[in-house]
């Protein structure tokens, strides 16, 4: 069914249909972790890592197990378990393999389980009938878009912090307004 250019899939996921700003996936970490540019980058890398692996594994589970056996109704339960265990596994692995990387990514990993961008991506890959290569590119695009807007918002928030923001707006409300303006800019891709 889907026979679209890989380039298009990547750019759609990263820009036109940005996972965070246009599709509202991964809002919690977007607001929670976007206080510092450095931590945003860390979160972005962790998401890239988990998104890519989770997409590939869930795609294969769907393609070779759930769909052939007519067990589509177990999709949600399977995918969330895969993502949760994957996050655990990655955390253990990174901790052993590269303590430096663990230091950088470690605290973000548990947050990813409830990052709906990962789950949303996994579901979209199979419902939109992407093949394995398209799935991979879709994951890379989604993660790139996620990291990009996360870092952008963090940059804005770092600046906002040193300015005198009206008290009721301070913190999350002003971050949401900034996100709204970013979303306006991203909507410009389709105009």
């Amino acid at each position: 069914m889907s026979e679209y250019g890989l380039f298009m899939i990547f750019f759609a996921a990263a820009f036109f249909n940005n996972f965070v700003l246009i599709q509202f996936l991964g809002i919690c970490p977007f607001l929670g972790v976007s206080k510092r540019v450095e931590s945003s980058l860390g979160m972005g890398m962790a998401v890239l890592f988990v998104m890519t692996l989770a997409s590939l594994i869930t795609w294969m589970l769907h393609e070779f197990l759930l769909f052939p056996l007519g067990l589509d109704y177990l999709r949600t339960i399977t995918f969330i378990l895969v993502i949760a265990s994957l996050v655990q596994f990655v955390e253990l692995f990174v901790q052993k393999a590269s303590p430096t990387l663990y230091k950088a990514l470690g605290i973000f990993l548990p947050l990813i389980t409830t990052n709906c961008a990962v789950m949303g991506l996994a579901i979209m890959n199979v419902t939109e009938g992407l093949n394995i290569i398209q799935t991979l590119v879709h994951a890379l695009g989604a993660a790139a878009g996620f990291t990009l807007v996360l870092v952008m918002l963090a940059g804005l928030r770092e600046h906002l912090e040193i300015h005198d923001v009206p008290k009721p707006l301070a913190g999350v409300p002003v971050a949401l307004l900034a996100a709204g303006i970013l979303a306006l800019a991203f909507s410009g891709f389709v105009l």
Binding site: L21, I22, F24, P166, K167, P168, L169, A170, V172, P173, V174, A175, L176, L177, A179, G180, I181, A183, L184, F186, S187
Partner: peptide, 17 residues
Amino acid sequence: LPPGAFISLGLMLAALN
């Protein structure tokens, strides 16, 4: 549209604050 979602929620939070 998507930008309006962020702006509406931001303004409503500000109002509650």
